[in-house]
């Protein structure tokens, strides 16, 4: 897990930019094996942003995804005036 604790102002993740830059490593799994298909997940509100990016099959780790989570402080996230962050979490999950 990578964790960033920032005391200075951080801007919210630009999801569109991230998707554009890293689209080559993302992949969904349609009718995946013996379980449900796996698609990207996005949840956002005034308190947090949480995205699961399913990734292309890794030669060693297999089918995994990246869960990115960021939380906003009491002021919340009200674009275009960005609020400070408390933490950002990145986790890699195996499907």
């Amino acid at each position: 897990m990578t964790e960033i604790n920032a005391t200075s102002l951080l801007y919210p993740a630009d999801i569109q930019e991230i998707l554009e830059e890293f689209q080559d490593i993302f992949q969904t799994y349609d009718h995946f094996s013996d379980r449900e298909s796996i698609y990207a997940n996005y949840r956002s509100d005034a308190k947090r942003l949480e995205v699961v990016f399913p990734l292309k099959e890794h030669p060693i780790h297999g089918n995994t995804g990246l869960r990115a989570y960021e939380k906003y402080n009491e002021a919340g996230f009200h674009p275009p005036a960005y609020a400070a962050y408390s933490r950002k979490h990145l986790r890699r999950h195996r499907f």
């Binding site: 999801i15 998707l19 689209q23 993302f26 969904t28 990207a40 997940n41 996005y42 949840r43 956002s44």
Partner: peptide, 20 residues
């Protein structure tokens, strides 16, 4: 679009924004 790893996210983003 849900099958597309990029636009699946963008569709959810727009849907949640509209709802909020």
């Amino acid at each position: 679009l849900l099958r597309d790893p990029v636009y699946g996210v963008l569709m959810q983003m727009i849907g949640q924004k509209k709802k909020r």
